[in-house]
Amino acid sequence: MKEQIRNIYCVGRNYRAHAAELGNDVPDQPMIFTKPTHALVEIDGGELTLPGTQGEIHYEAELVLHIAKPYSNSVTVNDIVDQYALGIDFTLRDVQSVIKKKGHPWLPAKGFLGSAPISRFRPFPGAAALAQTNFKLLQNGNVVQIGNISNMIFDLQTIIDYIAKHYGLGAGDIIYTGTPEGVGPVSSGDRLELLWGEEQFGAVTIKKEG
């Protein structure tokens, strides 16, 4: 899968309650950052190794879109997106806090190896259909995040238009669309499960080392 992905775009602070829980301002336009394709790893039920010596690592469950074709000004979400998945935007929170104070780029906190686990993709049913279902993240069997795209600050069309205008958007790009409230730290041995409604899209066991 990784070999077929071109760019990994991510949307920060796209759920109002999540921005509030971290004490961040709500943006007036999409906040976009990227991850290297080397950060991408498919969730297959196995083990995921993450760094264990750089402070807390927080999970951030997200809906992920797959772009099927080049963007044009008149294209809609339903025209350009062919697949969707669930993913986790892992964040080195202590590292992020330091670099935010310094005004440095987020890459060290967001782009490390294994920081973009993702489920397999499913056919895209349309934006309206997606809004009918919640996605969830379970940590050791407990629900820690529940999200619905209807609660996004910037909807899918706005995100796609914004990314295309400022950075370009084409076939093979994917977009992590933002995380709802409930983010928190992971520990070695934690079992994380991503659910779409009641259907499990993927699961992974965390191993921290280093």
Rank of each mutant, 00 (worst) to 15 (best):
A127M: 08
L48Y: 00
P180S: 12
T76A: 13
D161E: 05
L138V: 01
A129K: 03
P27V: 08
F112C: 06
R191W: 13
A171C: 12
T91G: 02
N142H: 15
I146P: 06
V64L: 09
F90N: 02
Q139K: 13
A164D: 03
Q54S: 07
R16V: 14
H18F: 00
D25A: 15
S74T: 14
K208A: 07
N78C: 07
R93W: 00
D155P: 09
F112H: 08
G55C: 02
D79Y: 00
E56Y: 08
A85I: 06
W196P: 05
V98S: 08
G202A: 02
P117G: 06
V144D: 11
H18Q: 07
H66Y: 14
V81P: 00
Q83A: 15
M1S: 13
Y84G: 00
L192E: 00
G168T: 02
K102P: 08
F90K: 01
A61I: 07
G202H: 03
L22W: 12
S187P: 12
G189K: 09
H104T: 13
V186Q: 03
N134D: 15
R93D: 04
A131Q: 12
F201P: 12
P108V: 03
T37I: 11
L169E: 02
G46D: 14
L192V: 01
F121S: 07
A68H: 08
G45E: 02
G178H: 00
Y9K: 13
A61P: 06
K35A: 03
M31I: 15
I43G: 00
L156N: 09
P123Y: 09
L194F: 13
C10E: 07
A129L: 10
D82C: 04
C10Y: 07
D155Q: 10
A116W: 02
T179Q: 04
E42C: 06
V26Y: 09
F124H: 00
V64R: 06
L65T: 01
G103A: 10
